[in-house]
Simulated assay, not measured.
Amino acid sequence: MTDRRDQNVYGQKQGVSRGWMPFVRLLAACALLFLWLPILAIIPISFSSGSFLSYPMPGFSLRWYAAVLQPDPWLAAFRNSLQVGIGTMVLSTTLGTMAAYGLNLTQGRCRSAVLAFLISPMIVPVVIIALSSYFALAYVGGLGSLNALVLAHTLLASPFVLILVLASLGQFDHTLSRAASSLGASPIATFKQVTLPLIWPGIFGGATFAFVTSFDEVVIAMFVTAPGQVTVPRQLFAGLRDKIDPSLVAVTTVLIAFSIIFFALLEVINSVSRSRTSRS
């Protein structure tokens, strides 16, 4: 009798939850529409034949995408952003992975304090990081170069790598590394052959976030780089200030497409990793 009553109560709870599902789905759809509608609304303007951002569009044209493919200023800005983004991704992924691996092996009260210190750039306003980077690089004579921007962006992007790799290490079975050590493997060989293959989805996710963070950042770029070293976000900011035309929307559409491809690729890799883990 008790089991039947429990099943009836569970069925009633399930019925109530199922009755709320259409409302929950409608609420989720409204939230997604609220987030995506401003983005989707500007994409058609990039195909406008007019010279201004306006609805209705006077006609359909690809002239603004052709303007984006010109060497100056957009292709040069894309080249600088890719160079800085790749440099930031490599440096922040290396530093963030090393920090996460060290923190994962650390026990004690100092672990939380060190973790809070390392992820503090995510909490501190970007303008403060930009100002401190400006004074620090000016002191050592490193202002006005893309390498300086890579160093400043690494400070901003490394916490993302640290958090994602630390989450992957939290699901790692350390008995595997201890077994490899007992069989004579060195710490470097253990990390390379045992730990790294199991946590690489977190490393890849952190690297992706580091690249996107660097590629989209504008405040630090305005403080650190020289006037001729323009990145894509800085050029967008200058275009909004000086001359607003649909080429800005065309660049924005390209960036949206790149972001969707990046995160779709990340989701595919995570799905493959989860399926391999479930099989094993």
Rank of each mutant, 00 (worst) to 15 (best):
residue 52 F to T: 11
residue 44 P to S: 10
residue 167 A to I: 00
residue 218 V to Q: 12
residue 43 I to Y: 07
residue 201 P to N: 13
residue 161 V to H: 08
residue 136 A to V: 12
residue 12 Q to C: 05
residue 256 I to Y: 13
residue 231 T to I: 02
residue 114 V to M: 14
residue 180 A to G: 10
residue 248 L to Q: 12
residue 132 S to M: 02
residue 16 V to T: 03
residue 258 F to K: 04
residue 61 S to P: 01
residue 71 P to D: 00
residue 58 P to A: 04
residue 141 G to F: 07
residue 168 S to R: 15
residue 34 F to N: 00
residue 197 P to N: 06
residue 135 F to K: 15
residue 215 F to W: 15
residue 32 L to A: 14
residue 253 T to Q: 00
residue 134 Y to C: 00
residue 105 L to Y: 03
residue 158 S to A: 09
residue 24 V to E: 02
residue 17 S to G: 03
residue 257 A to P: 10
residue 98 M to W: 12
residue 159 P to N: 06
residue 212 V to F: 09
residue 22 P to A: 01
residue 259 S to G: 04
residue 146 L to T: 04
residue 131 L to D: 03
residue 266 L to Q: 13
residue 97 T to A: 02
residue 222 M to F: 11
residue 259 S to F: 03
residue 125 P to E: 10
residue 45 I to H: 01
residue 80 N to T: 09
residue 51 S to Y: 13
residue 230 V to H: 04
residue 47 F to K: 10
residue 102 G to K: 13
residue 180 A to E: 03
residue 149 L to R: 09
residue 86 I to A: 05
residue 188 I to M: 15
residue 92 S to G: 11
residue 158 S to E: 04
residue 235 Q to E: 09
residue 193 Q to F: 14
residue 7 Q to T: 07
residue 64 W to K: 07
residue 147 N to S: 12
residue 109 R to F: 08
residue 8 N to D: 03
residue 145 S to Y: 06
residue 119 I to Q: 11
residue 139 Y to D: 02
residue 227 P to M: 00
residue 163 I to Q: 09
residue 68 V to P: 05
residue 201 P to G: 08
residue 41 A to C: 11
residue 278 S to A: 14
residue 233 P to V: 04
residue 81 S to N: 02
residue 191 F to C: 02
residue 255 L to N: 07
residue 246 P to N: 14
residue 272 V to F: 13
residue 107 Q to D: 01
residue 10 Y to Q: 13
residue 195 T to C: 06
residue 63 R to S: 05
residue 83 Q to S: 03
residue 4 R to A: 11
residue 209 F to W: 06
residue 93 T to Y: 06
residue 18 R to K: 08
residue 229 Q to I: 02
residue 267 E to C: 04
residue 161 V to Q: 05
residue 182 S to W: 09
residue 101 Y to S: 05
residue 6 D to F: 11
residue 211 F to N: 05
residue 70 Q to I: 01
residue 235 Q to L: 04
residue 231 T to N: 06
residue 218 V to E: 07
residue 270 N to I: 01
residue 203 I to P: 03
residue 271 S to W: 13
residue 185 A to Y: 15
residue 145 S to Q: 07
residue 123 I to P: 00
residue 84 V to M: 10
residue 26 L to A: 14
residue 193 Q to N: 12
residue 118 L to K: 11
residue 128 I to N: 11
residue 29 A to F: 12
